[in-house]
Design a protein around this nucleic acid. Structure first.
Lengths: 108, 108
DNA sequence: AAATATATTCGTATTTTTACGACATACGAA
DNA sequence: TTCGTATGTCGTAAAAATACGAATATATTT
């Protein structure tokens, strides 16, 4: 049923980025990590009203998009926003959104 | 199972916007409408590799977020990007993304 | 080595998304 | 009014997302 391959690479990349941002929990995780109160997974789970396994799953999705990175620090894992990737996708999305604005010309 | 209400209104609004943008077909529809080759639903379905009912469903989702508007013109319906709403959500999203960038300070 | 702490993966259930064909509706033309 | 055209809705099916507890893996401490 997956016919999405037909669409351009750019649109697919933007869609994947948007999908990564399409859940409040993931937005909250990114915000939390960027504020860097603590980059430890367990603390995120304490902060959010979600179980550890669920948070871990959201972290995995963000990792797959490379929006965050994790580095092992003894028992714990320090997560960190990957600002390069974030910048890249943000630009991609914004250039798409800006074009939408510019070309809106069929006022009814 | 829906625990998303716990998150702030802003995060929820951004997540809904991102969700609307999270499918290549909807991105393609918005792009198509903004270029205004034709704002007729049927033409969109011809342009995209999707059935009319599927396109109609995507249009409904975009309508529910008020990212597009439709006005009846005889038999046909003219769809149009709602640039005010688009601008509003774009700003909301960008202010969120910018804050992420600024506050990234826990380099490993 | 055993106990403890942290984090991920597995199995599972529920919900949502995606997609389509068939049907229904509404308008305009013959 | 009947026919064709444009569009949306319904029913349904398959896939993906969401969520959790239990089990597992790994590292630290005792």
């Amino acid at each position: 049923m997956n016919k999405t391959d037909v669409f351009s690479d750019d649109l697919q990349a933007i869609a994947r980025f948007a999908k990564a941002l399409s859940h409040p929990a993931r937005l909250a995780i990114l915000k939390y990590l960027s504020e860097c109160k603590s980059c430890i997974s367990g603390n995120i789970a304490d902060y959010l009203p979600l179980s550890r396994s669920t948070v871990s799953q959201h972290l995995t999705e963000l990792k797959e998009m490379e929006l965050i990175q994790g580095s092992i620090d003894g028992l714990k894992i320090n997560y960190c926003v990957n600002s390069d990737k974030l910048k890249y996708y943000t630009q991609l999305l914004n250039s798409y959104l800006e074009k939408l604005q510019v070309e809106v010309n069929c006022k009814i």
